[in-house]
């Protein structure tokens, strides 16, 4: 179990993991994905683990890499690059799985998301967050709850409850492969 404690340790030594949130202060964990920076509400994050091979699940969309064993619970692992229709890359030593808790209509679920690497923890005020711009239908922005400008550039804040809603993910699948197989055979 090669949980990459080093990242957490560095983050911790920089005092970034301390919950210093004030009344309107928010903390976001940021990570990189295909050269862009994204952020998730740190209260949604359960833990960060290094990538370890998962068990493939049949008839799941490509972005579902499989399921892993999280201390006895069966947790699906989703590749965010594939989820965003980005080009997939080889997993490296910095590839991590951010385990988040997602609220859905049927209760809370635990889901692992594969990202290129963890970057930082951002302390934000609600006032810092700008609404996501409307790109029309060309770009799906419904998973983005807002944008924040930091020194290094822009961070997109993700609405993980929507992004990782199982219902939403499978709504994308018009034909389930198993039935496709059944029809073809």
């Amino acid at each position: 179990m090669d949980v990459r404690k080093t990242e957490l340790a560095t983050l911790g030594s920089r005092g970034l993991l301390k919950r210093e949130a004030t009344a309107e202060g928010l903390q976001y964990l940021t990570f990189s994905l295909a050269g862009e920076e994204y952020g998730v509400d740190i209260l949604k994050v359960q833990e960060i683990r290094g990538w370890a091979p998962v068990t493939k699940v049949p008839n799941a969309p490509a972005f579902v890499r499989g399921v892993m064993n999280l201390r006895g619970a069966i947790v699906p692992v989703i590749d965010l690059r594939l989820r965003f229709n980005l080009e997939s890359v080889e997993y490296t030593k910095t590839t991590v799985v951010i385990v988040v808790t997602v609220q859905s209509a049927s209760g809370s679920r635990i889901i692992g998301t594969v990202v290129d690497g963890v970057s930082d923890v951002l302390n934000l005020n609600v006032a810092d967050i700008q609404p996501a711009p409307d790109f029309g239908t060309a770009v799906h922005t419904e998973f983005i709850s807002g944008l924040v400008t930091v020194e290094a550039g822009m961070v997109m804040l993700l609405d993980v409850d929507r992004l990782l809603s199982v219902e939403e993910m499978f709504a994308l699948e018009s034909v389930r492969p198993m039935e496709a197989h059944a029809a073809a055979a």
């Binding site: 068990t55 699940v57 699906p76 199982v166 499978f170």
Partner: peptide, 20 residues
């Protein structure tokens, strides 16, 4: 619990080596 029902699969378990 965390995912959804998969046709052809009744459930999952943790094997001796920790894999699913």
């Amino acid at each position: 619990k965390n995912f959804r029902r998969v046709s052809g699969v009744a459930g999952a378990t943790i094997l001796g080596d920790g894999r699913v």
